[in-house]
């Protein structure tokens, strides 16, 4: 999926500036955006105020009420330790909504800086990084991230750093091609004639014009970061086993689906699905609005 997600959005800076004023209103006219944004806001609220919203303590085992089916007291039933699944789903949004956005921010900042340098300066570094990205793309990003996480151990920090670093060259590639488009335009020689240095041209002239591309990259990558964090947790690389986490909860409970306790895995699974689909709807809408 990386390959296509990394395709540069065909957005040129000039069009985006014209569209800048009504962009928000254009977004609000898209039903897909509204649906995605509402779901996303719901999960953000859960991540922030989760413990206050949840009807039960998500970490409190009830050994006399394990594997209870859905009921008025436990809307989503209870898990193998008798913990309330509904509360765990609500509070579990926090784990993923901290790691994934931070990793994406890291990757976007580094990737944009690298992309600007590669696209504007070019040269040997450009060719070298191009090869490196080729090599990276030969593997699904999940596998590389998995490999590194196994090597350094799973903590929130290592997940953020590893995912951010793996995203960096992928984002750099997209930004690089947007920068190369900008480099053909007349305002760059003009800026140079005015005596602007390379750094100033890159960051003050080119960067604002490739921002739409960066924004689209960010939203697309965010969806992929959530995919990755959830998958790592499902594979047993959950960060902290005591805090509720959708992927880890599925990992811990999917063995008992066969015993009929489906609610312990299905509801966290649906939560992950709703979050990634929501981000995807938002990302797709932004991309379409910016593309005009």
């Amino acid at each position: 999926m990386t390959d296509l997600a990394a395709r540069p959005a065909e957005v040129s800076g000039r069009d985006a500036r014209h569209a800048a004023l009504p962009a928000w209103r254009l977004l609000l006219r898209r039903p897909a955006f509204i649906v995605g944004a509402v779901i996303l806001i719901f999960w953000i609220v859960c991540a922030i105020f989760g413990t206050a919203i949840a009807p039960h303590d998500p970490t409190q085992p009830q050994l006399l009420a394990t594997n209870q089916p859905l009921s008025a007291a436990h809307w989503f039933g209870t898990d193998q330790l008798g913990r309330d699944v509904f509360s765990r789903v609500i509070v579990g949004s926090r784990a993923i909504l901290i790691v994934a956005p931070l990793a994406t921010v890291l990757g976007t900042v580094l990737g944009t800086a690298l992309g600007l340098a590669l696209g504007y300066l070019g040269g040997v570094l450009d060719a070298l990084v191009g090869r490196l990205v080729e090599a990276l793309l030969a593997l699904p990003a999940v596998i590389i991230i998995f490999l590194f996480i196994v090597a350094v151990g799973a903590t929130s920090l290592t997940e953020i750093v590893v995912i951010g670093f793996i995203f960096t060259p992928l984002i750099a590639r997209t930004v690089r091609s947007a920068v190369q488009v900008e480099s053909q335009l007349d305002y760059l020689p003009a800026a140079r004639l005015l005596g602007d240095g390379r750094a100033r041209v890159m960051f003050a002239e080119i960067l604002p014009n490739v921002m739409p591309t960066v924004l689209v990259e960010f939203t697309v990558r965010l969806g992929y970061a959530i995919f990755t964090v959830a998958t790592l947790a499902f594979l047993g690389f959950g960060v902290d086993p005591s805090t509720p986490n959708w992927g880890s909860d599925i990992y811990a409970n999917y063995g008992v689906i066969g015993a009929g306790y489906w609610w312990e895995t299905l509801f966290p699974a649906l939560a992950i699905a709703s979050l990634v689909v929501a981000i995807n709807l938002v990302a797709d809408s932004i991309e379409r609005v910016l593309a005009g």
Binding site: Y224, F227, A230, T231, Y254, T265
Partner: peptide, 9 residues
């Protein structure tokens, strides 16, 4: 964008 294990479950 939905992880494989979610669809699988």
């Amino acid at each position: 964008t939905v992880p494989e294990f979610v669809t699988g479950i």
